[in-house]
Computed example of a mutant assay.
Amino acid sequence: MIKVGIVGGTGYTGVELLRLLARHSGVKLQAVTSRKEAGMKVAEMYPSLRGWVDLAFSTPEDARLTECDVVFFATPNGIAMQQTGELLDAGVKVIDLAADYRIKDLSEWSKWYGMQHASPDLVEEAVYGLPEINRAAIRDARLIANPGCYPTAVQLGFLPLIEAGVIDAGSLIADCKSGVSGAGRKAEVGALFAEAGDNFKAYGVAGHRHLPEIRQGLTRIAGVDVGLTFVPHLTPLIRGIHATLYAKITQDVDLQALFEQRYLGEQFVDVLPAGSHPETRSVRGANVCRIAVHRPQGGDTVVILSVIDNLVKGAAGQAVQNMNILFDLPEGTGLDIVPLLP
């Protein structure tokens, strides 16, 4: 059994990790940390886990994390980079669900996250945990940078087109919408029901911290710098991301066949039949990205529709998928979940 620790188990990503790992046949939950809630039973905070998780929250010092096989960081940005080195030195593998190790350019990272990096020597080593691109590297990794939610939906949508070189990579557009859980479990006016309900708004148009992550990933695939306009929106949903992606076609190809071939055998990417319009509710609670590709009026613009659950394939589910690869388990172990409807 894989001995698992979770640092930061009180947020939405943390409880989603607990939900998935509690039914995972190959793991044993060793510790779940929270300084503020130390001593409280996990199931007391999250009654949905009654009968599934019998642990109490502990402080990181009392959790004996160095005795784990893998530790997940479900913490705010800037926490994992303080503790990762010690864990790696003890032979523990680390999967960071925050952004501490996603961006290779440290000056770019500091610009967007407003702090100096505490373990810059580990940034280059970290493997970006998007399995559909980096599966081989993930298998041999000590440290995995779990992708962000928007970057997952956007990169999976553009990936087949950029790999095939059939679009203009200099003028990409990502028009994305997310539910309020993407903002985390914290008291914030904009996430209040009276503010977010019955409302729809764009934010971060001048620049969003996921922009450099997406651009880095797409540039690596393209082999040249990509031009990307990324505009996120907040919707009155709890879960879900819908990414509508636009690009100019430079070669006349069968787009449907291109996507179907690229994702053939990928358990967690579902290319829908031609003409489909994926809905966020079709992935709610599941570790799957559903994609549809369109060419309106047969013109020179391709439109990709990509939907994920931001807490699962966009966070905790993808982290468990990475863990499965890391420990040579079947990739879908613990992730064979039917989406919730309605």
Rank of each mutant, 00 (worst) to 15 (best):
I308R: 04
T250P: 03
G9R: 06
G298R: 04
K177P: 00
G91E: 11
H233Y: 10
T84R: 14
A319I: 09
I162S: 01
F73A: 06
A187R: 07
M40I: 14
G148C: 03
M323D: 07
G314Q: 02
A202G: 02
V283M: 01
L228K: 03
R50V: 15
N287T: 14
F72M: 07
E44S: 07
E37T: 15
I138T: 05
L122A: 05
E16V: 09
D300W: 10
S58H: 13
T75V: 10
A164D: 00
L245N: 12
I173Q: 12
L122T: 08
G14H: 15
G223W: 12
V293H: 06
G223L: 11
T59S: 11
N322T: 06
E260D: 06
S178W: 00
A315T: 10
G5I: 04
G184V: 03
R102D: 12
T244E: 13
D309V: 00
I308G: 02
G51A: 03
V42P: 02
G129V: 13
Q116I: 06
P236N: 06
A136I: 05
C176F: 00
T66W: 09
A187N: 12
A141P: 15
I2M: 07
L88T: 13
S171R: 13
F268W: 08
T59I: 05
V27E: 14
Q216E: 00
D270K: 07
N322Y: 11
Q321P: 06
R295D: 07
G197Y: 06
I103A: 02
A63Q: 09
A145D: 11
P47I: 15
T219G: 01
V92H: 12
F230V: 07
V205P: 03
A206S: 00
P278C: 02
K177G: 08
H233N: 09
E61T: 07
A164N: 00
G14Y: 13
A63H: 09
D254G: 14
V303Y: 04
Y12D: 14
R239T: 06
L130K: 05
A222V: 01
I2N: 08
A126S: 14
I138H: 08
F327W: 10
V283Y: 02
E163M: 04
A315M: 13
M81D: 14
G114M: 12
H233C: 05
I167E: 03
